[in-house]
């Protein structure tokens, strides 16, 4: 019985690990797709401010994501998707593109990725 229990725990852990890796992989693919679609390149030199004039200059689909994130302060792709009523994968792609463009920061905590506009010093 005990052996059986141990096995069960092990396999659940393994499955979770696989799920995690898949999610990360998914995110990376999203970013690549976004970069391909919009031809935006990372510009690490100038970390940019997400002020309203910048918001105005963004393409519509990114603006919606960016404004939502400004409202939430800090959020996961799930949180943003809930507000915008778009698919999580879509928001994840947009959020990651905003990170690449230098407007957002991203931080992994445990299994989740959190996005935020630059924090006050």
């Amino acid at each position: 019985m005990a052996v059986y229990k141990k096995l069960e725990v092990k396999s659940t852990q393994l499955l979770e690990k696989i799920k995690d890796s898949l999610e990360r992989l998914n995110e990376k693919i999203d970013v690549m797709i976004e970069i391909q679609k919009h031809g935006q390149r990372a510009n690490p030199e100038i970390p940019d401010a997400l002020d309203v004039m910048t918001l105005l200059s963004l393409p519509d689909h990114l603006r919606k994501t960016a404004v939502t994130l400004c409202k939430l302060g800090e959020a996961t792709a799930d949180n943003v998707a809930e507000q915008t009523k778009r698919a999580r994968a879509v928001e994840s792609g947009y959020l990651n593109q905003l990170v690449i463009m230098g407007y957002l920061k991203k931080e992994r905590r445990g299994r989740k990725a959190y996005f935020y506009v630059e924090k006050e010093a």
Binding site: A49, L50, D51, V52, M53, T54, C70, V117, E118, E120
Partner: peptide, 10 residues
């Protein structure tokens, strides 16, 4: 500056 305006928006 823009940074300040961004924080003001927040």
């Amino acid at each position: 500056d823009r940074k300040w305006e961004m924080r003001a928006l927040g």
